[in-house]
Design a binder for these strands. Sequence first.
DNA 1: ACAAAAGTGTTGTTTTTACACCCATGC
DNA 2: GCATGGGTGTAAAAACAACACTTTTGT
Lengths: 238, 238
Amino acid sequence: MQRYTGQKRLLVAVDCIVFGFDGQSIKLLLVKRSIEPYKNKWSLMGGFMQPDETPDDAANRVLEYRTGLKNVYLEQLHVFGSPDRDPVERTLSIAYFALIDINKYEQQLVDEFHAEWIEIKDLPELIFDHGDMVRMAKKQLRYKAALHPILFHLLPERFTIPQLQALYEGIFQAEFDDRNFSRKVLSTGLLVKLPEKDKQSSKKGAFYYRLNQTEYLENFDSFLNFVPNPDKLLTENL
Amino acid sequence: MQRYTGQKRLLVAVDCIVFGFDGQSIKLLLVKRSIEPYKNKWSLMGGFMQPDETPDDAANRVLEYRTGLKNVYLEQLHVFGSPDRDPVERTLSIAYFALIDINKYEQQLVDEFHAEWIEIKDLPELIFDHGDMVRMAKKQLRYKAALHPILFHLLPERFTIPQLQALYEGIFQAEFDDRNFSRKVLSTGLLVKLPEKDKQSSKKGAFYYRLNQTEYLENFDSFLNFVPNPDKLLTENL
DNA sequence: ACAAAAGTGTTGTTTTTACACCCATGC
DNA sequence: GCATGGGTGTAAAAACAACACTTTTGT
């Protein structure tokens, strides 16, 4: 077998910034590091890339191992590679951000892995450069969410418009006009109205909706402002 | 010195997708690979990451070595890590895309490094997964350019509005209304009118402009559509 | 009947778009 | 003086924001 000679090889890890939403606030899933140094300090969920994996494979594996969840919304964020970011040994880390429905997360795993959902407003100090990763992930989440309908991944299959609005308000730290919000959301054609209502949070009750999967996939890229003829631009040839 | 035991280390490279614009068409700077296998096949400019470098350092180094240019607009795109992407040995590649003023590129380097500016419409087959990298870079360029004023990096310091329009039309493969285009661009306040005109391409002549560096930095994130209160969203706390 | 939240209708404002037309200049 | 692009003016259309008001239902 051939090899490239004279080049140094290095460790590569993946770290996942896992977002959740409990109806009130945005949270991150953190774990306590199990090995020295920094044992028991807060950390993102991570793991080393294995020889036969792609980076996406590795991130999915880590996520499934730690949360029991498959088919999670997962997006490669950025490679962090400062030579001294890990004091043990030089390690490159590919950061991913994930959006999961917090209700699907098995509470038992909190104990098993010393994991914890922690409000994003009140994060503890994190090891290595994980704080930078979180900062970038927050920024990217807003960026993406402003242009694409990704926040649905943080909600259960069935949700109400007011729930969706609370989520958007949490993410963007802004209050939206209720009436305009629901109209705008509905006008996208992404939602399917269900017959039942949620009676928990109001007397009148709010109808449940679910995502129209087909529309979701088709309209994922509908956005743009600076340039006319939006839509398909990103899929067409340059 | 401590080490993580039982983990495989791997090679990490950077590859740069370098965009240029000659007034007519969008081009990529490609090189002929100098080593076996695939010697003399078309390739992106790349190199291995060195022990003391960050990925950004490595990309800048590769770019300066091959083009002689510093302070180029460079953005990390994506990590490509399919286990068999390089037949010689497993190698992770961090892809970067770069925007350079094609006029600043020294023509002599074309010879020195067997580099070539090739129209993006007419690319040859590339080694490894470089074709995928280019595809993603094209998409990302459009995406970013639709929301942020980055295309100026492809132009000389002084440029005319019609030149800028030709560039946008090239990138988005669409025709824009001249009158609306110039008004829209001017309304951003990003451009400073210079006293001279370019008389090359028309009898009346078009005024030269340059970028207002301060405004550029301040307004880089001004965009957004789906969510009210645009601007500062990305820099504020979540 | 009343309070409280969901959701619809209406209206004024701003942003886009389309396009007529004027401007400056080289030939 | 006329052809050629550069650039301004204007009006119609579309998108957006603000907010009055109606609807539903638990107490």
